[in-house]
Design a binder for these strands. Structure first.
Length: 588
DNA sequence: ACCACTCCTG
DNA sequence: CAGGAGTGGT
């Protein structure tokens, strides 16, 4: 009876089957980030062999050493210079934004439990006793050697950039410098805040947390924490560095994927999908999809029809062809798994060599949703709906999920640990990127294609170069709020248009790349058209459009809060964001 | 109280 | 896109 039932039902099912995490909470941030794993098209291998033996084999030992070393160095540094004004500096390098910082700690449980940034830091550094200093100094020397090894092992490829790792003396800085690959417009410094990214380290650190205090004087904890951050940040940098290389080096792979994917679209036209493809797709029932599959995959809408055989086929709503933009841009949505997966395995390892286990979130690659091409569609004036008889299922192109095995490739480990609510970078790193810049905004917009309701934690994870404090966080959240506003306005507008155009079945509303609606959205979030909008976004957009259509059709818009139910639905359909977005220099 | 959100306004 | 008001959830 309820018009929504047709759509919502399947949807709900989809969510529960495909994306448990998703359902965990309305907009609980955690689920996505923890349980969910970014569908990274690549990065299949969970935790098997480490690509870089040097680095991973002795990871434990090395990590430990590195950690100690870092601590030592940090101690030295703080004793020498940083000591004063410690608390202030860390709390607000620049946030004039007031005292707001004071109480809050958006803290994330995950990180270091015991240590508390607050007041402790004040005297922490000062009280580092001389005795300890001596000991530490000795350790420092010993560790320098280790550091060299670590750095070398960590970035063999970057050897050229940092020959000899001569800058060891600079401690953490040397690491930072290493990562100086490429210029990051908005990332003057992205060192701090990285801890959030690689869970394993944090985990290990936790384990050792109990031990460390022994070395540290009373206020040592503060330093410990700072150092901890340093260490994590350094490692993350290294990882990023490698990630960059791996991801960027073989651009061809992604590009090709994206291209092939789209290239197929055109011909699909009105013909029923070819048996093979169609079957493939159609047979991809929710149940078989990995938990996380979810919306991201193009399956969602398609399956709706499956779920409900009686539903008429959806017709693309496109009214105007727009030049097909991006032709060879890296596909951001998980599509098929390229053969270079192996390379990505390295990444996977790098990013997750940790308490893994958070890996299994498998991801459906299906994502490949193919855009439903709009065939000879009779373009509707309002630009969207194209009505067609029955069967025009969306043609499927060579499906993404190449082989069964690949379908369930594990995703990159989700970043489980956040920056632990340490909003301010340790004073040790004075230069941290300040506020948000246009680059951040652009990135945020692109991220919107994947997530409409990002949690602050997620944002922190994806903007490692941003110093998150209350204001920054709020600002970024506000951005997304603004993005949503625009998004929903467009949806409502087009839904009403469809209604006025006489469309009666919401399922006939599908947002295609050549639709007016898409154009508007793309223009807003992807002005330069330099990013290939993921299909998952089209799915969500279509769904949103349909929801608005239903609501308005049903006259629910008379209720002041009629949009809420829609928001609720959409808020559960966020997709995972490609790992590459975690790079502070990504969109560049 | 806080926070995040929506809605409205500039 | 930022501000501010109003709202609802904690």
């Amino acid at each position: 009876m309820d018009p929504n039932s047709g759509l919502l039902s399947p949807l709900s099912r989809a969510c529960s089957h495909l994306a448990e995490p998703c359902m965990e909470g309305e907009r609980s941030p955690a689920p996505r980030e923890q349980g969910g794993d970014p569908h990274f098209p690549w990065s299949p291998v969970p935790s098997s062999s480490f690509a870089d033996p040097d680095w991973f084999c002795d990871e434990n030992i090395q990590a430990k050493r590195a950690r100690v070393e870092t601590i030592v160095q940090g101690m030295c540094l703080s004793l020498n210079a940083l000591v004063p004004g410690n608390a202030q500096a860390r709390d607000s390098p620049y946030c004039p934004e007031k005292a707001q910082e004071r109480k809050r700690k958006q803290s994330l449980p995950t990180q270091q439990g015991p240590l508390k940034p607050g007041p402790v830091g004040d005297h922490g550094s000062r009280k580092g006793g001389p005795r300890v200093r001596e000991q530490l100094y000795q350790l420092k020397q010993q560790l320098r050697h280790l550091q060299k090894h670590i750095l070398q092992a960590a970035e063999p490829r970057d050897a050229a950039q940092d020959p000899g790792g001569s800058e060891m003396d600079k401690g953490p800085l040397s690491v930072k410098q290493r990562k100086g690959y490429g210029s990051r417009p908005w990332a003057v410094d992205s060192d701090h805040h990285h801890q959030g990214s690689r869970g394993d380290l944090s985990q290990k650190e936790k384990h050792r947390a109990s031990e460390e205090p022994r070395f540290l004087p009373c206020g040592g904890q503060d330093l410990l924490e700072i150092l901890r951050k340093e260490l994590t940040g350094a490692v993350c940098q290294a990882v990023d560095s490698v990630l960059q290389k791996v991801l960027l080096d073989p651009p061809g792979h992604l590009t090709q994927l994206g291209r092939s994917f789209q290239g197929l679209v055109p011909e699909g036209s009105s013909e029923p999908s070819p048996p093979e493809r169609g079957i493939c797709k159609d047979l991809f029932p929710f149940a078989t999809l990995p938990r996380r599959a979810q919306p991201q995959t193009g399956v969602l809408l398609r399956n709706l029809s499956l779920a409900n055989p009686l539903d008429p086929p959806r017709y693309p709503v496109s009214s105007r062809m727009i030049p097909r933009p991006y032709q060879g841009r890296p596909a951001n949505c998980p599509l098929t798994v390229p053969s270079h997966i192996q390379e990505n395995q390295i990444l996977s390892q790098l990013l997750s060599h940790g308490p893994s286990d958070h890996w299994d979130s498998s991801l459906p690659q299906d994502s490949s949703s193919q855009s439903h091409s709009s065939p000879e569609s009779a373009l509707r004036p309002w630009g969207a709906v194209k009505l067609r008889p029955s069967v025009l299922s969306q043609q499927q192109y060579p499906l993404p999920f190449t082989s069964p095995g690949l379908e369930r490739l594990p995703l990159l480990p989700s970043v489980k640990v956040e920056q632990g609510g340490l909003q301010c970078a340790p004073d040790v790193l004075p230069f941290s990127s300040e506020g948000l810049n246009p680059g951040h905004l652009k990135k945020a917009k692109l991220m919107f294609f994947f997530t409409r309701y990002p949690s602050s934690n997620l944002l922190k994870a994806y903007f490692p170069d941003v110093q998150f404090n209350r204001c920054i966080t709020s600002q970024m959240i506000k951005w997304f709020s603004n993005f949503r506003e625009f998004y929903y306005i467009q949806m409502e507008k087009f839904a009403r248009q469809a209604i006025s155009d006489g469309v009666t079945n919401p399922k006939m509303l599908v947002v295609l790349r050549d639709s007016e609606l898409f154009r508007a959205l793309n223009m807003h979030y992807n002005k330069g058209n330099d990013f290939e909008v993921p299909d998952c976004f089209l799915e969500i957009a279509s769904l949103t459009l349909q929801e608005f259509f239903r609501a308005v059709s049903a006259g629910k818009d008379s209720d002041p809060s009629w949009k809420k139910p829609i928001y609720k639905i959409i808020s559960k359909l966020d997709s995972d964001i490609p790992e590459i977005f975690k790079s502070s220099s990504y969109p560049q």
